[in-house]
Write a protein that binds this DNA or RNA. Structure first.
Lengths: 412, 412
DNA sequence: GAACATTTTGTGAAAATCCCCAAAAACATT
DNA sequence: AATGTTTTTGGGGATTTTCACAAAATGTTC
């Protein structure tokens, strides 16, 4: 501590709130203390002067997502995660943020939280900065205590969540009791959501993920855990109207944020249908795994599908693959078309596949194949002749589509 | 034998051909002897005068199908199956048949065969008729011998066929050897064909069936057997070009003949795909059973389908039913639509089903539902909204179609 | 029964699809 | 090289489909 003044924070601190008041007294400005996920830990009360951002932070017990996003974009948070020095933040009227100084609280190389000092009356000088650094140092210990207490809680969460995912708690009452003990209020409906990463998720990744999840408000995350390269969440939309849309939106923002902030690419998201019965969590989890499994097998055709209910016929592919594996079946139409393709090196099979994939739309298919619509028509006529396919019969077409896709996978 | 003349046929007969010559000598006209299925057993050679129908009978070793059909329609054969008296048949130029007399050969209440006498030079008188009756009586014993010999052969056929159907002979060589021993020349490709009757097939039915099968020439019937209410055939088209068409045609004629001649109704036909590997007979048999099973479950939608390859997606229904039975899955779109239907007693689900069944054709669906095309459009828009169905996505539509049909069956 | 929402039907114009023909190109066969 | 077959592309007109809008009918709610 290379400073001329004695450390005014070297006193016993009872609660973190008292400590916030203490800093506030010393620096003569409103103080807010957050954890690393921008959850409110404590705030000074002696002072009534404040700004809208602080008010909503205190009311919501967390920094509004809008504000966090802005602070990321504008560079404040990235800076705080790099340096141990206090940082000036200029006022941003559009999000109700006035001038302030922030400092991060460090333990070794990890940020435990932040202290915010509002520059309502006066701007802080260098001496104040030194005081703030001392305050941060003292806050560290208090935060560490909270951390360990939280870690234990986390562990209990984890255990509970895995029991739910694997269907080890079947009784409805028991599930609800657990939720209560954990002080989680289960939403009326939920979905299981999995993000599959390219590589196994490291501790560092976990921190980043946790950070994003904790700062998300659009969606309620009741439980989450990590399994190798999968991040597994139990979520529910905050608004009842269209939960799937909310989840989808969250997935998009989650992916873009991990991408922008941490440069993590190629995450495969997958989520189950919406359920209201918490006994079906394990089923929902299986659904998401099914989605991921299919997405691995048919990456192109399921590129835009993340949701089990939107898998459509692909829901049944695992089953069908299994069946086809155990028999020597071959679709006669496909066989004939393939033989023709071979002999005349044409591409009737490909044409047929795209045509069926494009929902029998001539124009779309022709565009995809880069041929004239009339060419496509001619080919379809030939396909009907050679493959003995009746394009008016949905039963035949569906089986053809399925066999086509199954063969495609088996062929790989 | 209430006749004035001594019986000229009470001599030892060596072969049936000699017997035919003997009758020919006595009656002074060409004689042909057939079994009950109009297969040629013997014919007189002393005489060169004959008609085209007899020539083709001798050459093909059976009466041409065309002629048999005509004799049925015109009433000759039905009459022969009723009376033991000789019957005059007037000439039918269009099928090359000149004047003749026919008599059936009886054993108790069963017809073993027929004797035909051509009236080339002279018309037979009453005395000739009496001689013919005596000849028929004598022929009986000879035919009985043939019968028993044939029955033993039949039994071996049966055993072999069942081994093939149940997959008990797997070795290719062995199968071919058996065919040779049975003096059957296996066609290059085959199909298994099953007719399922309403009731168990009686001995009487069996005779009728056998009669129809033996007199069929459009298709080669290599083996056949009867199992409770099923007639099982191993067939192949005589012409290579389009075997399925030939089988289909045979099925039609078989059913109309059993209907017209014996009044047997409501036969469900089913046949496998065309195979060229005789080791796959048991698979082909399973296919036909699958067709019958599906036809029982979905009689309306599979009314016109008899062929496994034409089952399309229905091929997979057994499997899917099994899967759905073991889980609590419910298609969310369907569920929502059903709920809406219930509440507003509308019929969106029915509309959707017919629309999908009619291959997404607005006009056909509207006609089927007896509504205006715009009404249908409006409903589809509502279905898309309420059921969150994307009509541009074939995957979703297919699953919807499947779940619709599966539910329909489960609901019954 | 009035007010309102939902559903059905009709109309007509724009858009698309379908169908027939023919020319050109590509390919196969001899 | 000559010939015939298959495939691709284009044009253009008949037909169908799609879509928006409006009126009428029906159903719901208070």
């Amino acid at each position: 501590m290379n400073t001329r003044l004695p450390d005014p924070f070297k006193t016993a601190i009872d609660s973190l709130d008292d400590f916030a008041d203490l800093i506030s007294q010393v620096l003569k400005c409103p103080i807010t203390i957050e954890d690393s996920n921008h959850r409110l830990l404590a705030y000074s009360t002696h002072d009534e002067r404040t700004d809208p951002a602080r008010i909503s932070t205190i009311i919501g017990r967390r920094v509004p997502e809008k504000v966090i996003n802005q602070l990321w974009k504008e560079g404040t948070i990235p800076a705080l995660l790099k340096t141990k020095e206090p940082i000036h933040v200029k006022s941003m009227d559009d999000i109700g943020l006035s001038h302030r100084v922030a400092i991060s609280i460090w333990k070794d190389e990890e940020v435990l939280g932040f202290i915010w000092a509002l520059e309502i009356d006066k701007l802080l000088n260098e001496e104040d900065f030194n005081l703030l650094k001392k305050a941060a140092n003292t806050a560290k210990n208090k935060l560490l205590q909270l951390q360990t207490r939280k870690n234990k809680k986390e562990e209990r969460f984890q255990e509970f969540f895995w029991k739910l995912l694997t269907g080890h708690i079947e009784d409805r009452e028991e599930i609800m009791e657990h939720f209560q003990t954990m002080q989680i209020t289960p939403a009326s409906s939920f979905a299981v959501l999995v993000f599959q990463f390219q590589k196994n998720i490291t501790d560092k990744d976990e921190q980043n993920i946790s950070y994003i999840l904790k700062t998300t408000q659009r969606i309620q995350i009741m439980l989450y855990t990590i399994d190798c390269n999968q991040l597994i969440l139990l979520v529910s939309g905050t608004n009842m109207e269209n939960p799937l849309n909310e989840i989808n939106h969250f997935v998009q923002t989650f992916m873009s944020k991990t991408m922008e902030r941490y440069g993590v690419m190629d995450i495969s998201p997958a989520y189950s249908g919406i359920y209201d019965n918490y006994q079906k969590i394990s089923k929902a989890y299986k659904e998401t795994l099914a989605v991921l499994s299919i997405k691995e097998k048919f990456p192109l055709e399921t590129k835009t599908i993340h949701n089990y209910t939107k898998l459509g016929i692909y829901q049944l592919f695992d089953l069908l693959l299994e069946k086809r594996k155990n028999e020597t079946y071959e679709n006669p139409s496909l066989k004939m078309l393939e033989e023709y393709d071979q002999k005349h090196n044409s591409n009737l099979v490909e044409t047929l596949e795209i045509f069926l994939t494009k929902d029998n739309n001539i124009n779309d298919t022709a565009k995809e194949l880069n041929v004239h619509a009339n060419t496509l028509n001619y080919r379809l006529k030939r396909i009907a002749e050679i493959g003995e396919v009746d394009f008016k019969d949905p039963n035949q077409k569906m089986l053809l589509y399925l066999d086509l896709k199954l063969k495609k996978y088996q062929g790989i």
